Simulated scan of single mutants.
Amino acid sequence: MNLSVRGKRRLKAAVTNGIMMAIMIFYLLPFWYVVNNAFKERSYISLQPFTINLDIFTLDNIISAFSKMNYPAAFFNSFAVLAISCLIFILLGSMTAYGIYIADHKFFNRLYVLFVALIALPFQAAMVPLVTLLRTLHLSDNFLGLALIYSAMFMPFIVFLYTGFMRSLPKELMESARIDGCSYFQVYAYVYMPLLKTVTGIVLVLRGVYVWNDLQVPLIVINNPVRQTLQQRLYVFAQSRIGNFDLVFAGALLTCLPMILLFLMMQKSFIKGVMAGSVKG
């Protein structure tokens, strides 16, 4: 009986690992295709698309794409949008969740339900009113306006995460801090926010990567070429060089490289945060 159970568990583990390996290969193949062909001349891409040969290795594509895309300026634009968006995500999301948590009132509980329900609202349904509102407030073609659009898109999900995590913490922490003389804001800043590092990290990674890689929202908000993000610059760059796959692959690699490097540097912290969150849940 025990041998049968062990056999079933091993079979289940083998099947699960096989499926995960297939998914990993499915995601890695397109990335390898881009990385491999970004360092080749155009004539070799169709001849050797999946193999790399040091004899045909070249950095000319990277250098040319870096220069023609005006990469430093576009990188700064994307970084500015990402920084402003993440700041709004953390401050407004955590403070809204904190207010819902400490009030514990029917009105705020219903407000929380409304926030959760808004997660199902697609961006396309609110796209036209949001863009019209930005123009009315003179925030169109502006980094802050773009960040506010992302905040409107993701705030329900962020409030949901922060509120759920706060409700898993004992309220005795707040009561003890209040007895010691802390104000509600001090309790939020010095007691709860340090305990919310896990969910904050998850918000930064999940929503931050989306903001960096998004093309749709910048296309409808940013019109000034000087303020274009990396994704917009890559889109324009690829449209003007149809057939020049060597330069397009090089530009795509330069665009996604910052997020790849960031994940490689922070993967241990991210994994620890996910594990801590799963244990708390």
Rank of each mutant, 00 (worst) to 15 (best):
V34E: 04
D214K: 01
L133C: 12
D141L: 01
L257R: 04
V191P: 00
I102V: 12
R227A: 05
F50K: 00
L204K: 02
V113R: 11
A126G: 03
K68P: 02
L261P: 04
D55C: 02
F185M: 14
G93D: 02
R178E: 07
L254Y: 07
S140G: 15
L196H: 00
E175H: 09
S140E: 13
Q186C: 04
K268P: 10
L91V: 14
E175K: 09
A80T: 13
L146K: 04
G99H: 00
I63T: 07
A125K: 08
Q232G: 03
V226M: 14
G277R: 08
G7Y: 06
V205S: 02
V211S: 01
N109F: 12
F31Y: 12
Q239R: 14
V274W: 09
L146Y: 04
F66L: 09
S94Y: 01
Y210G: 08
V226I: 15
A22M: 15
V211A: 06
Y150P: 03
S278Q: 12
C182L: 13
K40D: 03
A276T: 06
Y190T: 09
Q231C: 11
S43T: 11
L234F: 03
K197R: 12
N70Q: 15
T58P: 07
Q124E: 14
V187W: 04
Y210I: 11
I52C: 06
M275H: 09
A250Q: 08
V205R: 03
V199Y: 07
Y184V: 02
A152S: 12
E172A: 10
L133I: 13
L254T: 10
N142Q: 06
A147C: 13
Y192E: 04
L134D: 05
F237M: 02
K171A: 07
V131G: 01
F123A: 06
I102F: 08
L264I: 13
V191D: 05
R135D: 10
C182H: 09
L264A: 09
L87P: 01
L139I: 04
G201D: 07
N36M: 13
L91P: 01
V248S: 02
P194F: 11
V279C: 02
L215E: 00
R241G: 13
C86F: 09
R110H: 14
T58K: 05
L11K: 09
V211Y: 03
L206F: 15
I88P: 04
Y235F: 15
